[in-house]
Design a protein around this nucleic acid. Sequence first.
DNA 1: TAAGGCTGTGACAGAGTTATAATATCATAC
DNA 2: GTATGATATTATAACTCTGTCACAGCCTTA
Lengths: 221, 221
Amino acid sequence: MDILIVEDNKELAGLLCDFLRRENYTVSVAETGEKALSLYERYGARLIVLDIMLPGTDGFGVCKKIREESNVPIIIVSAKTAKEDKLCGLDLGADDYIEKPYDIDIMMAKISGIFKRRYAVDEMADGDIRINKVSRTVYKNGVPLEMTAKEFDLLLLLAENKGRTLSKEYLFGQVWGSDSFSEQQTLTVHIKWLRQKIEDDPKNPKRILTVWGVGYKYESV
Amino acid sequence: MDILIVEDNKELAGLLCDFLRRENYTVSVAETGEKALSLYERYGARLIVLDIMLPGTDGFGVCKKIREESNVPIIIVSAKTAKEDKLCGLDLGADDYIEKPYDIDIMMAKISGIFKRRYAVDEMADGDIRINKVSRTVYKNGVPLEMTAKEFDLLLLLAENKGRTLSKEYLFGQVWGSDSFSEQQTLTVHIKWLRQKIEDDPKNPKRILTVWGVGYKYESV
DNA sequence: TAAGGCTGTGACAGAGTTATAATATCATAC
DNA sequence: GTATGATATTATAACTCTGTCACAGCCTTA
């Protein structure tokens, strides 16, 4: 499981849950401290969003318990805004202390940031293609593809501009870092190699499309 | 170096610096983005406290540059309180975004928390490899491996950035503490020695992988 | 439909990068 | 001062990447 939300306000929990699932995280919700601990015991989590005011064991207690055995990132969320409460939460080992009500975009950004840094995931996905910028690996249906430096740069540039036609001059300038564009062929050859690696049928490219007389564009399958 | 403060307001920087030194952190202050980057390149840091409004390259630029090659914790501190600025900072990979003026106790708690979670971990484990930072020993399937200082530093750096491709320049800068990078070969030779110790089959490395034209990365088996 | 320009393909060689082994230098402890 | 181990350097080998070319095939336009 990716994220465990500990929150007794069902509406709030549901909202965050929806946003997270939309970003493809797997999420569970616990409404009491006890449930949170047992869920964490059984299934673990890669991040915990923890409310302080809970029936039964409160958030501080949950935080303390979890920290006894794990460094899993914990974001405390609370309507308690007193400095003492924040210090208490931080001392107990929470990674962050966010005041209620919070902005959902900020929360999402913090969560995604923790995942990126902690689990080294900075990926863009498009259909069965997944491009991991941090490790510079490309996956197709989960299978890693060996990419050379130039191939990776070229693919990333195209994929980040999905649907947009990029001129050959532009592509060359960005990837080769030069405006000379001496050899037109160089680019077409690299495009060919790229297609051989990521297209199902390199002869009939579906992802990296030629735009005649202009350049190339990346499209979803 | 433990903490790099990037802040052009000398008074503010001095204050934080004093508090931190009282807690026995080693601290440096950079007053511009450029200085920050060159200091980080040369000496590294275990945490960066980064102001946004700086003369020259602003904090966002510094953050971006650093994130291109490192997961070092970054706390952004700024008088800019707009949601967009916060999102921008978080998107660039900052661990936290603290508004100015901030409470020094909260800041100290956050810093100490980051150090505890991130560095006060005596051991890190990854599959059958266990790295003990205190004794500077590496275990493979419980069997201790003799590591030289350089080998250990290199392995730890790679392992702490698991999944992230680290450039040769960065690796050299961090382990050899120099930006000269005079001798490319030095690094490759040490990589080879490392592989001989921790890879099952040093000829077919599965943990320390070459990223052609870029550098190396550590991956779980 | 034919011509001309644009793109795709396969092969190859050279450039550049990395791996390896051997040797030299340095620091440290004895 | 010597022995030892760690580290740096060097030379060479092995390998991968990249750019180039020639030619084939395709698209567009007249």
